[in-house]
């Protein structure tokens, strides 16, 4: 209660939008996150890399309150997610977009209605307005004429893009992307990356992007975090990350392919 009575604006600028504080999470005997710390500042984009199964999706799920930590804290705008009331959590989520790794489209709604769903359920906008906005987001992800298709009728890459459109429909301040480029061809992927970058640059959207593709990370990310054994192995500016000679990173990328570090920044 005390915290909420303080003028929020004073603190808001220097409090990281998302902060993990010594987070632990296990499933049975499997210790997935073991003391993860991370910070994302307003308007910044953090890329999370890590081996398959290292806990990247689990990390994102903690931010939006789909999972609760065993110990440690996740703070969003300075408020601990696990301690939020139902209303606070709902409020926070309305300001967030989440792109699921496999789309997670509602299978019995058409593509258009999937994108429109958050507006239909949580706002009083007119049908016309909702359709216009949803259609605009569909165009943004390059699927302008799929409104009436069903999720089962479209390709995996398209489902991914619809998932992105749906996450963007409420114009959130924070967007969490779980492998936004997986399954997309290079051309579409570039355009999605440009969109992510554009949102961060123009609207000060804060994002976390779980991603493997180096080209994508170079375009979208301000910082990169490498998740290893449940901890942050390194969190640093993108250029420094690719310049790093950490043995684990060299192994991850395959020794030879890492180097494009001799690049503009150095």
């Amino acid at each position: 209660m005390d915290e909420s009575t303080e003028p929020p604006s004073a603190a808001a600028s220097d409090v990281p939008v998302i902060r993990f504080d010594d987070l632990h999470k296990s499933f049975g005997k499997q210790h997935v996150l073991a003391g993860l710390n991370l910070d994302v500042e307003r308007g910044k984009t953090l890329a999370i890399m890590g081996a398959s199964g290292s806990g990247k999706s689990v990390t994102l799920r903690h931010i939006i309150g789909l999972m609760k930590p065993d110990s440690g804290r996740v703070l969003v705008e300075g408020v601990e997610v696990a301690k939020m009331t139902r209303e606070q959590l709902s409020e926070m989520r309305k300001g967030m977009g989440y792109v699921f790794q496999d789309g997670a489209l509602i299978n019995w709604l058409s593509i258009g209605e999937n994108v429109a769903l958050p507006l239909r359920e949580n706002t009083n906008l007119s049908d016309k307005e909702i359709r216009e906005r949803a259609q605009h987001k569909l165009e943004l992800v390059h699927v302008p004429d799929a409104w009436n298709k069903m999720p089962s009728e479209i390709s995996g890459g398209m489902r991914k893009r619809i998932g992105i459109a749906r996450a963007l429909i409420t114009d959130p301040d924070i967007i969490l992307y779980d492998e936004p480029n997986a399954g997309l061809d290079p051309e579409i992927a570039r355009s999605i990356n440009a969109t992510i970058r554009h949102l961060a640059d123009t609207l000060e959207v804060t994002s976390i992007v779980v991603e493997h593709r180096i080209e994508c990370i170079r375009v979208v990310a301000d910082e990169v975090l490498f998740l290893h054994e449940g901890k942050s192995l390194i969190q640093t500016a993108t250029a420094d990350f690719f310049a790093s000679q950490h043995p684990r990173l060299l192994r991850f990328f395959g020794q030879d392919s890492l180097p494009p570090s001799a690049n503009p920044h150095s």
């Binding site: 789909l66 989520r93 509602i106 299978n107 958050p118 359920e121 949580n122 749906r166």
Partner: peptide
């Protein structure tokens, strides 16, 4: 089966993160 499929394919989680009841 309908709701179960939604649950295991993250659709219910998607509704939750969109604050949809």
């Amino acid at each position: 089966a309908e709701l179960g499929t939604m649950s295991v394919s993250d659709e219910l989680a998607a509704l939750e993160v969109m604050s949809i009841d």
